Simulated assay, not measured.
Amino acid sequence: MNSTTRTTNSELNRQRQRLETLVQPTPRALGLSQVFRSLGDRLLNFFTGTEELRIWQSTRNGHQVWFAHDPITNRTRSFYSEQDVRQWLDNRYYE
C-alpha cells in the first residue's frame, strides 16, 4: 500500500506542477502584454491628441513604484514615493 500511496503522491505533485505552469505567466507572455499595453496607450494618445501628463502606481518586487509619463518629451520616469513625484512635478512646472 505504501508504493501505491507514493505513486499517487508523485503523480499528484506532477499534476500540480503542470497546473502551476499553466497559471503562472511566462516572461515572454509578460513581455507581450507590456507591448500590447504600450501600443494601446500610444494609439489612444494618437487618436485623442492628448498631451496631458500621465501618472500611475504599480508594484515591483513587493515595493510601490510611481511612474510619470510626459507625452511632450515622450519620457517616462519612475519614483519610489509620492513625495518624489510631487517634487518632480513642482520642479517641472517651474522650469
Results as ranks from 00 to 15, higher is better:
residue 86 R to D: 12
residue 68 A to P: 03
residue 40 G to W: 12
residue 33 S to M: 03
residue 1 M to K: 06
residue 45 N to S: 12
residue 11 E to L: 09
residue 69 H to E: 03
residue 73 T to A: 04
residue 36 F to H: 05
residue 18 R to W: 04
residue 51 E to V: 05
residue 92 R to G: 05
residue 95 E to R: 15
residue 58 S to L: 02
residue 45 N to G: 12
residue 28 R to Q: 01
residue 28 R to S: 04
residue 46 F to Y: 07
residue 63 H to A: 08
residue 16 R to H: 15
residue 95 E to Y: 15
residue 47 F to Q: 06
residue 70 D to K: 14
residue 15 Q to K: 07
residue 41 D to W: 14
residue 30 L to K: 07
residue 17 Q to H: 11
residue 89 L to R: 01
residue 37 R to C: 09
residue 28 R to P: 06
residue 62 G to F: 02
residue 23 V to R: 08
residue 74 N to F: 12
residue 51 E to Q: 04
residue 62 G to M: 00
residue 43 L to E: 11
residue 77 R to M: 07
residue 3 S to T: 02
residue 34 Q to E: 04
residue 18 R to T: 14
residue 46 F to V: 08
residue 69 H to M: 12
residue 76 T to R: 15
residue 7 T to C: 10
residue 31 G to N: 06
residue 77 R to D: 14
residue 59 T to K: 03
residue 8 T to Q: 10
residue 2 N to G: 00
residue 88 W to A: 08
residue 92 R to Y: 12
residue 38 S to P: 01
residue 39 L to H: 10
residue 92 R to Q: 14
residue 67 F to K: 11
residue 78 S to W: 08
residue 83 Q to A: 15
residue 77 R to N: 11
residue 15 Q to D: 15
residue 91 N to H: 11
residue 47 F to S: 12
residue 25 P to S: 03
residue 74 N to G: 07
residue 55 I to T: 03
residue 11 E to Q: 05
residue 4 T to E: 12
residue 54 R to T: 00
residue 4 T to F: 08
residue 10 S to Y: 02
residue 7 T to Y: 10
residue 34 Q to N: 10
residue 64 Q to I: 04
residue 89 L to K: 13
residue 19 L to G: 12
residue 28 R to V: 08
residue 5 T to F: 06
residue 63 H to K: 10
residue 52 E to T: 01
residue 38 S to D: 13
residue 42 R to I: 11
residue 37 R to V: 07
residue 28 R to C: 05
residue 94 Y to Q: 15
residue 24 Q to T: 09
residue 76 T to S: 13
residue 15 Q to V: 13
residue 57 Q to I: 05
residue 41 D to S: 15
residue 64 Q to Y: 09
residue 35 V to S: 10
residue 53 L to G: 01
residue 93 Y to M: 15
residue 59 T to E: 03
residue 26 T to D: 09
residue 21 T to R: 14
residue 59 T to N: 01
residue 23 V to Y: 10
residue 48 T to C: 11
residue 55 I to P: 00
residue 62 G to T: 03
residue 90 D to I: 04
residue 19 L to I: 15
residue 83 Q to C: 10
residue 52 E to C: 00
residue 29 A to G: 04
residue 14 R to C: 07
residue 72 I to C: 09
residue 86 R to Q: 06
residue 24 Q to D: 06
residue 3 S to M: 05
residue 51 E to G: 04
residue 32 L to E: 08
residue 10 S to D: 07
residue 34 Q to W: 03
residue 83 Q to S: 13
residue 5 T to L: 12
residue 30 L to A: 01
residue 61 N to W: 03
residue 70 D to Q: 04
residue 1 M to S: 01
